[in-house]
């Protein structure tokens, strides 16, 4: 194994089901249902997935959902904005914990 991540491994994802086929079946069905057209469009769901993929920093997901977003009709501008949303929440989540820091400072300061 030369690297932890290899692009061709993405297509091997179903092999994860070999040890627990019933669980894999349930996951696959649920996953498919999650991304089906519903109250949100398939395009919107793909953009959410792309943003989340950047938050969890999964290279497989980034690869797959970049392609999916393009095939659902999103363009690079929209996809970049979606990533900024993820980054803003991620950055904001760090920053908002500054309130805790301030609380601690307040508690232990004269």
């Amino acid at each position: 194994m030369k690297t932890y991540y290899a692009p061709e491994d993405l297509s091997k994802f179903p092999t994860v089901g070999e040890g627990a086929p019933e669980l894999w079946k349930k996951f696959s069905e649920w996953y498919g249902a999650v991304f089906a057209e519903g109250a949100l469009s398939e395009r919107e769901k793909a953009l959410i997935a792309l943003a989340v993929a950047h938050t969890v920093q999964c290279p497989y997901c980034i690869d797959a959902y970049t392609q999916t977003c393009l095939e659902k009709g999103s363009n690079e501008e929209q996809m970049t904005e979606a990533i900024h949303v993820a980054a803003a929440i991620r950055g904001g989540a760090s920053l908002v914990h500054g309130v805790q820091m301030k609380n601690v400072v307040k508690k232990i300061s004269l």
């Binding site: 395009r43 392609q67 393009l70 095939e71 659902k72």
Partner: peptide, 12 residues
Amino acid sequence: PAGAFLPPSQKA
């Protein structure tokens, strides 16, 4: 498509 991917839904 402007690349190596399939077209989106025609209607969309």
